[in-house]
C-alpha cells in the first residue's frame, strides 16, 4: 500500500529520507503541501533535532492540520519522546524514532512516551514500517536510543583522543577498523552522519542524565561553531573536495 506521509523539519537527513521513502513507493509531502491532502495522510515523520523551539512549534503546527488518530514519528536524537509528547495535545500518538541510517538499516528503533497508557494501541502505529521491510525494535525512551547513542559515544572518545594528540585522525580511524572490526572509523563515520547530529545526541544525553560521561568533547563544540559539520558541507574531521 502506498502510504502518504508528511516529512517535517530541517536537517541534512531530509533529502536522504525523502528519497528513500519515495523509492519505497510512499508519497512524501512537506507540511506546506499537506493541507489539501490532510484527510489522506497516514503518518508524520518529524526530524527536527530539537536544539531550539522550532521542533515544538512545528509539532503544534502539524497537530492543527491532522486528525487526532494520525501517528507522529519524531526524532529523539536530542530529546526524549516523553518530553516531546508533553508539548502536544494528543501525546498518545507520539512515537520517538531514530532517523540515522534510516535508508540503510533493516531495523528502525522507536520509543514510547511515558504518557502512553495503551501500549498495544500505540505499538500498532509502528506496523506501517514493516510494509517497507523494516523490523521495528521498541527500546527505552532516552535521547539517541541504542545505535545513535553508541555511535555518539564512540565518536566522542575518538575526538577526545584526537584533541589530546594521542594519534592523528587517519590513524584513529584506521586503528578502530583494523583493531576491532568497526565498519567505519569513528571520525569519518561522524563526518558522514553530520557533526551536528553527533553533538545533538551527546548534549541530549548530558542534559537528561547530568553525567560527565556524556559531556561532549570541546573540539566537537568548536566544529559546530566553525561550521565544520562533515562531508555534507565539505569539511569535518577531514576535508572533502
Amino acid at each position: 500500500m502506498s502510504r502518504r506521509v508528511i516529512l517535517a523539519g530541517n536537517g541534512a537527513l531530509y533529502p536522504e529520507i525523502a528519497n528513500y521513502l519515495k523509492l519505497q513507493g510512499w508519497m512524501v509531502y512537506s507540511v506546506e503541501e499537506s493541507w489539501q491532502e490532510r484527510e489522506k495522510i497516514h503518518a508524520v515523520l518529524e526530524i527536527e533535532s530539537g536544539f531550539n523551539d522550532d521542533k515544538r512549534q512545528l509539532l503544534i503546527e502539524v497537530e492543527k492540520i491532522l486528525p487526532p488518530d494520525i501517528p507522529i514519528f519524531t526524532s529523539v536524537l536530542h530529546r526524549t519522546a516523553t518530553e516531546i509528547a508533553s508539548w502536544v495535545r494528543v501525546p498518545e500518538r507520539i512515537i520517538g524514532f531514530s532517523p540515522l541510517l534510516l535508508s540503510e538499516m533493516e531495523i528502525l528503533e522507536v520509543s514510547s512516551p511515558l504518557q502512553v497508557r495503551d501500549q498495544q494501541k500505540w505499538a500498532k502505529f509502528t506496523t506501517i514500517w514493516s510494509e517497507i521491510g523494516k523490523q521495528v525494535e521498541i527500546v527505552g525512551d532516552e535521547p539517541g536510543l541504542v545505535f545513535p547513542r553508541t555511535l555518539a559515544l564512540l565518536v566522542n572518545e575518538a575526538t577526545f583522543a584526537l584533541s589530546e594528540r594521542i594519534a592523528n585522525a587517519r590513524d584513529i580511524d584506521l586503528a578502530m577498523k583494523l583493531g576491532t572490526n568497526f565498519p567505519e572509523g569513528p571520525l569519518s563515520w561522524a563526518d558522514q552522519v553530520g557533526i551536528d547530529y553527533i553533538y545533538a545526541i551527546l548534549t541530549g544525553l548530558y542534559r537528561e542524565y547530568g553525567e560527565d560521561r556524556y559531556r561532549p568533547a570541546p573540539l566537537l563544540r568548536k566544529m559546530i561553531y566553525a561550521g565544520y559539520l562533515g562531508k555534507e558541507v565539505g569539511r569535518g574531521f577531514y576535508d572533502y573536495d
Binding site: 547513542r149 553508541t150 559515544l153 572518545e157 583522543a161 590513524d171 584513529i172 583493531g179 576491532t180
Partner: peptide
C-alpha cells in the same frame, strides 16, 4: 593506548 580506549564506550554503554 588507542583501540582499547576508544572501544570502551562500545562495551560499557
Amino acid at each position: 593506548f588507542l583501540v582499547n580506549r576508544v572501544a570502551r564506550p562500545f562495551h560499557i554503554e
